[in-house]
Computed example of a mutant assay.
Amino acid sequence: MDLNSLSPQETQRFLVAVLCLSAQLRRKDGRAGRICARKWLTWRQLHGDNDQLLQELNKEDRKGHKNFLRIYPELFEEMVERLTPILKKKDTKMRRAQEMGLKLAVTLRHLASGNDYTSLQYSFRVSKSSICWFIPLVCQAIIDTYKPEVMKCPKTPEEWNDIAKRLASKWNYFNCVGALDGKHVAIKKPKGGGSLYFNYKKFHSIVFMTLSDAKYRFLFVDVSAEGGAGDGGTLQKCNLVRAITNNQAGLPQDRNLPNDDEPIPFHIVADDVPSLSSRG
């Protein structure tokens, strides 16, 4: 995949944002209210952001395009091409199918700005009910298409050893295979969720756990734990942590530190969380 418009770090951060949004959407209950067809919605090609503003930014201000959607026009066109076979819909007698570029632009703008569906409805001239329906589909298609390429977790001793070498070279810290941390992502309280998602910061959330290498690139992302789970509970639900604890992650054998004769296990660094064992 040609990602000349984004650095690896930017690409991975973008994918993490998609993962978090997708997880949020899966936990929302109910659907947006139906909106009757309105005349101003039919003027999308004349006044909508996708058909007007984005086209101007594409031609005249590439940096503005990136600021608006967080990606350059070249990557946007690539994404449209790759996602179209997955999400393309057929025209019906009642209406024309919305083009992939429009759905992708609305989704990326939501990720970039956090604008709610009502705001996006007016700027892109797409009904709120349509936005509510297609944003989760676009997010999932992005995950399925790009995750295997830009976020590969090491599985063999050789791959983990390469990560450790880069950390040792840049940070002078040895036998380390990554830095682990978590982030609370705010969500609306799920129906019937009780206190399950209510965290110690006093808001409802889900937690995604990430493992990063020496260049701040994500090697692994887990979006599954409820915000109400403590550090121990969050770690227990993390697939990577379970694999390491059960000696199934493929970590290298213990190795001596420089100028030392005592073998030290390969390990992960983290902030103040319950200790983990690199061996079962």
Results as ranks from 00 to 15, higher is better:
residue 36 C to Y: 14
residue 81 E to S: 07
residue 24 Q to A: 09
residue 62 R to Q: 01
residue 208 F to W: 00
residue 39 K to H: 13
residue 213 D to R: 13
residue 280 G to Y: 07
residue 67 N to S: 15
residue 36 C to Q: 13
residue 236 Q to V: 14
residue 99 E to A: 07
residue 90 K to F: 08
residue 181 D to R: 11
residue 139 C to E: 01
residue 228 G to S: 06
residue 100 M to S: 07
residue 196 L to I: 01
residue 13 R to P: 05
residue 28 K to R: 14
residue 230 G to C: 06
residue 37 A to W: 13
residue 42 T to Y: 14
residue 123 S to F: 07
residue 140 Q to T: 15
residue 203 F to I: 03
residue 121 Q to I: 04
residue 116 D to P: 04
residue 80 V to I: 15
residue 93 K to P: 00
residue 11 T to K: 00
residue 243 A to D: 13
residue 265 P to C: 05
residue 56 E to M: 13
residue 206 I to Y: 03
residue 212 S to W: 08
residue 210 T to R: 03
residue 277 S to R: 15
residue 205 S to F: 06
residue 55 Q to D: 07
residue 142 I to D: 11
residue 2 D to G: 05
residue 97 A to M: 02
residue 191 K to I: 14
residue 272 D to E: 12
residue 137 L to V: 12
residue 276 L to S: 04
residue 90 K to C: 14
residue 198 F to A: 13
residue 213 D to K: 10
residue 184 H to E: 05
residue 149 E to A: 06
residue 162 D to V: 15
residue 204 H to L: 02
residue 18 V to Q: 10
residue 172 N to T: 12
residue 199 N to P: 05
residue 21 L to F: 08
residue 156 T to H: 03
residue 109 R to M: 08
residue 38 R to G: 15
residue 159 E to D: 02
residue 3 L to G: 02
residue 32 A to S: 15
residue 4 N to E: 15
residue 193 G to M: 01
residue 100 M to C: 12
residue 269 V to T: 11
residue 68 F to K: 01
residue 223 V to R: 05
residue 30 G to C: 13
residue 239 N to I: 08
